[in-house]
Design a protein around this nucleic acid. Sequence first.
DNA 1: CATTATACATACATGAATGTATGTTTTCAA
DNA 2: TTGAAAACATACATTCATGTATGTATAATG
Lengths: 220, 220
Amino acid sequence: MYVFKAIRSCYNARMRKTKEDTQKTRQDILQAAVENFSDKGFFNTSLNDIAKTAGVTRGAVYWHFDNKAEIFDALHADLHEPFIEHVLADLENDSPHPILQLRDLMTRLLLELAQNPTKQQVMGLFLNCDYSGVLAPFKARHKASKEESLALFQAYFKRAQDKGKLSPDADPEILTLTFHCFLKGLLIEYLNSDIIDLKAHAKPLINQLFEGLKAVHDPA
Amino acid sequence: MYVFKAIRSCYNARMRKTKEDTQKTRQDILQAAVENFSDKGFFNTSLNDIAKTAGVTRGAVYWHFDNKAEIFDALHADLHEPFIEHVLADLENDSPHPILQLRDLMTRLLLELAQNPTKQQVMGLFLNCDYSGVLAPFKARHKASKEESLALFQAYFKRAQDKGKLSPDADPEILTLTFHCFLKGLLIEYLNSDIIDLKAHAKPLINQLFEGLKAVHDPA
DNA sequence: CATTATACATACATGAATGTATGTTTTCAA
DNA sequence: TTGAAAACATACATTCATGTATGTATAATG
């Protein structure tokens, strides 16, 4: 009972692609997904939306991915994780002044982000996403990868401390959390509103964080 | 053509309520909404979910609210805004040591939050929600109310500065953004993961923010 | 070169959520 | 005391996204 409306071929585009074509389709779908998720949110994006943006049908999407949640996961693996690891890699080569290195790294990160729309979209997607519904299964794994990053950060502070570049009474855990929270809040605010202009604010904000409110005049 | 399956009344509960009963139903629905949104996320919560939790049917929900988005908005007006204004009110009564006052206020805020599950849920709902789809119409207004808060914060710093309690070369705008971002990131992290234990971390984290990384030993 | 598996496009079936229409009971106002 | 309106519960219609089944043309493979 399966009848095509038109007897003549409906397939005007050539079908079976070369392996490069196939991977390009996959990338197109992922890119389309990022844009749609970033624009309308994950849960307000249908597979049809993604397919249309990518210039394919849902058939192609289902060929490459099991469902929308798997696209989300693929984005994490293909785009987010590499980006994070690239940032963390910078922390590996040790500097004579770890704290300054960190400050410069963060400043650079922010300024780079301000010039890469796709990175902004990916960041915005994973920075504080709602792991509910079909995304629930990925919460644990994505969280684990985040904690791994935090552990590296903490180790970084510890090394700096051991090398005498950081006060012995500073707590690496507290430092890590402070940085993490500040950076997270900053990025979220930057990506979701327009009250922060990274080009203008990145440097002073980072500096403010590093210097604290030592500006207090008369401590009680 | 509209026929009830049972001829005898299906309405076992008494119907028309007193005005207090009505308001109680409304509150029940709002409370049910908070719990469901907090648990499964706004977009993964159906009106049926909310109705069931509240012990009513969708009929009652549609009587009190136009749709799910209006429930969201009502939560903002009824629960979130009052909470924010309560916090901001504390900033009005001026202290001899504004910076210390601020530090204590923030610490207190965090510790209080740690003991009030409903406040946590409301916070988690509005702190960084996804204003897409049916929530898009509220983005501008909620953002405006947020910027109003930030303006008050900035005025607070400016007053502190005028009173000579804050270094004249500190930038109230940068200070405001720094605090906002840090607090936002901290709250989001606290509400969405378990890596932060407010009871243990609130004080040291706030102190860390206020003191900065003055721990750098040998600035290049 | 024939075949097979690939890389999709199209068609179909289903369920879930929504919005609305209507029914019912009770309170309250006239 | 008697409508009328309030405060819901129930029933209905429609949309929309999803998942799957199937068709089909081409590249890869032997």
